[in-house]
């Protein structure tokens, strides 16, 4: 590599690294650090509680399981949606494409209220399910629906560009060798999409975990059943137990970071194939 002859677009490694680290510090690291300091402010009792109180543990379970489920649901349907939007041309395609971002644009509380009204036993959709004896609002199913709604754009928007870039010759090569459509999708297309799906999954999972506004309305917030961890943080804050809320937040942070880090590792492994 020629180090000095090539003109760089962004001046100087020193300046850019300095900018990067100070930006990341101010926006991400310092608030996180502050959270850690805060949680141990009044000794370790807050922590002990955050790791032992059965109600809080149940809150983690609800949050992590529902987020996982929502991200999983979106991986399947988001993939199909992205596929349809990139592979087919039909009237209204641009409109649907534009609608994908709507969950981002809507204030989350508005989304929560609308979803609750729709899925409660008296609502349009909820009443149909209630007739079959299935309750959606105020159960975990409701939480998953709210989280799915809020995280759909992540999956679609990460897969879409990859699908658009994907060379049609891969599929044609599969066809020429006599592979069925199913095999072509599983063996040829899916491996190409996996890194993007994983990224989308990670983003959706993290977003769902932290989602508060849209979920609290539809969740019903029954302790041990539909109480999510972010709500517990809010209620601890309202009781002025800052250390406890910070401790819960820190536990969630560590778990989320581990998940994201794991996904990143898998992805960089996959990226090494795609260089040629």
């Amino acid at each position: 590599m020629k180090r000095h002859s090539a003109k760089r677009i962004i001046p100087g490694f020193g300046i850019s690294l300095g900018l990067t680290t100070s930006f990341v510090s101010m926006i991400v690291l310092i608030p996180m650090l502050f959270l850690a300091v805060q949680s141990t402010d009044a000794g370790w009792s807050g922590f002990r509680q955050a790791l032992s109180d059965p109600r809080i543990l149940a809150g983690y379970e609800v949050s992590f399981l529902c987020s996982f489920a929502a991200a999983g649901v979106n991986c399947v349907f988001g993939l199909i949606l992205a596929w349809v939007l990139t592979r087919y041309r039909f009237p209204g395609r641009r409109l649907i494409d534009g609608l994908i971002e709507l969950p981002f644009a809507l204030p989350t509380a508005v989304a929560g209220i609308a979803l609750t009204a729709l899925y409660s036993d008296k609502g349009w959709i909820g009443s149909a399910f209630a007739a079959m004896g299935i309750k959606i609002a105020y159960t975990r199913a409701g939480i998953i629906i709210a989280m799915t709604f809020i995280t759909l754009p992540f999956i679609v928007r990460t897969i879409q560009p990859v699908l658009e870039q994907l060379d049609g010759a891969y599929e044609e090569a599969g066809r020429m060798l006599g592979a069925s459509r199913g095999r072509i999708f599983r063996k040829i297309i899916l491996p190409e999409l996996t890194p993007a799906v994983l990224t989308g999954f990670g983003l959706a999972f993290a977003r769902a975990l932290g989602e508060y506004g849209s979920v609290v309305f539809i969740a019903g917030n029954m302790p041990f059943k539909t109480e999510i961890a972010p709500l517990l943080i809010m209620s601890k804050l309202e009781q002025f137990s800052y250390d406890e809320s910070a401790a819960i937040a820190l536990v969630m942070l560590v778990v989320s970071f581990t998940v994201m880090f794991g996904i990143n590792c898998v992805q960089s492994g996959a990226a090494s194939f795609s260089k040629g």
Partner: peptide, 11 residues
């Protein structure tokens, strides 16, 4: 069929 950019399966 041999494709122009070979279309070898990368994975």
């Amino acid at each position: 069929f041999v494709f122009q950019n070979y279309a070898l399966f990368r994975y």
